[in-house]
Design a protein around this nucleic acid. Structure first.
Lengths: 224, 224
DNA sequence: TAGATTGTTAATCGATTAACAATC
DNA sequence: TAGATTGTTAATCGATTAACAATC
């Protein structure tokens, strides 16, 4: 009865469920069926039921899921029912944006420390946090028990920052820099590099209606 | 011989390949094998070859892939060999950050217009662009032939902005707001909501070494 | 009770990986 | 030529979906 291995696809859907559920909750809706969730999210209801069933029996047959209860359960699963402390390196515009989001967030993930390498940034204030110099990172991460590091520095500095986070003992890294980072196996890394999203979005432009891509280009031999 | 249907998973890997290739190019490396790419990206070499082979024969047997040639080809596939114009709504910190990234980007995706609803933002300058009022959006999008809209407004305004983008005729939307947006089938939407990344990252914290989750919680009947 | 909806098993579908002939 | 590596087919693996008994 050990928890079956949960695929990444399942885990990535949980925050989406949470988002819809929070919205339903704010509209004071108390119960929801997998059917209804499926319509909202363009997902197969069976998939939603199956995803949730990996973690327990959260619903009631004939009724559906209690919104508040399910929110609580998903939070438990994602471990955001406890406060998780986060540090951020790179006090630029993006760093600012994330700190602000943070302020309004309902989830218990808190950015509790901000670092930067540039002397003109150090000592300034972001959302009640004082920007600290990089050489204090290790100490602060250890002392505050920070578990996640966010990287919002230019690509060429990203690996270096990641290394410092890892040395300091974070368990996960959220990387916004457009760079491929090497991390040891025990550290989880997620990339939130928006250029990837933008480029893959471009692929789908006009893919139906214009035929530009359908001739030429295909049957020449490569690199001649 | 019509192009086989390309799965989303494949398309999402193309920008990653492009990223590594650009890096190799900047280091003046001229040829690369699927083997080497696989090591760098933690991907199976066969998968990389198969991904690329959907679009043509880009490599040379016994040799590998010419870096410059492959960059060019992937750019064609993603349609970023031409300039693609992008508009952004929401001139906050995140909007600023994206506009700046944009400035340094090598890809031909250009943010050419920025909008905001707040009077105090309108008329200000971001990266040489003047922030415009929302009521000019439709006209500007049409005139400039803008094909992608980026949404960096609070969640409660996101759907409204999306509707305006869609009415103005954009083909794709990149949404940074933590909201689930409804769009018509012909409009492609990608979500870059960082809270999702952060929440799914939290799931993986400590999943190996602490057993907190392994008892209790499982076999109580739901909602009693 | 009848209708609705879950949790779960079985069937299907699609994506990844292995293997290898072709060839540089 | 011998070694390397592609493009591609076949085998495997995993994820999604359909179907339905259990039950509220």
């Amino acid at each position: 009865m050990k928890q079956a291995k949960i695929s990444e696809a399942v885990v990535r859907r949980l925050p989406i469920y949470l988002q819809v559920l929070n919205e339903l909750h704010s509209r004071e809706i108390q119960t929801v069926s997998s059917q209804e969730l499926g319509v909202k999210l363009d997902l197969n209801p069976a998939q939603i039921r199956k995803d949730l069933a990996y973690f327990g029996e959260f619903g009631r047959k004939g009724i559906g899921y209690d919104v508040i209860y399910l929110i609580e359960k998903i939070r438990q699963i994602l471990k955001v029912n406890q406060t998780i402390k986060v540090a951020l390196v790179g006090a630029g515009n993006l760093g600012h944006a994330l700190c602000n989001y943070n302020k309004y967030s309902k989830d218990n993930m808190k950015i509790t420390a901000v670092f930067d390498i540039h002397p003109d940034k150090i000592g300034t204030n972001i959302n009640n946090l004082v920007v600290q110099p990089m050489n204090e990172l290790t100490e602060v991460v250890e002392e505050q028990n920070i578990r996640i590091g966010i990287i919002t520095v230019p690509a060429y500095e990203a690996q270096n920052v990641a290394n410092q986070f890892i040395a300091a003992g974070v368990e996960g890294i959220l990387n916004f820099a457009p760079a491929i980072l090497r991390v040891p196996e025990e550290v989880r890394i997620h990339n939130a590099d928006f250029t990837r999203e933008l480029l893959s979005l471009a692929y789908y432009l006009n893919h139906e209606d214009d035929g530009e891509n359908e001739e030429g280009d295909r049957d020449e031999s490569a690199m001649d």
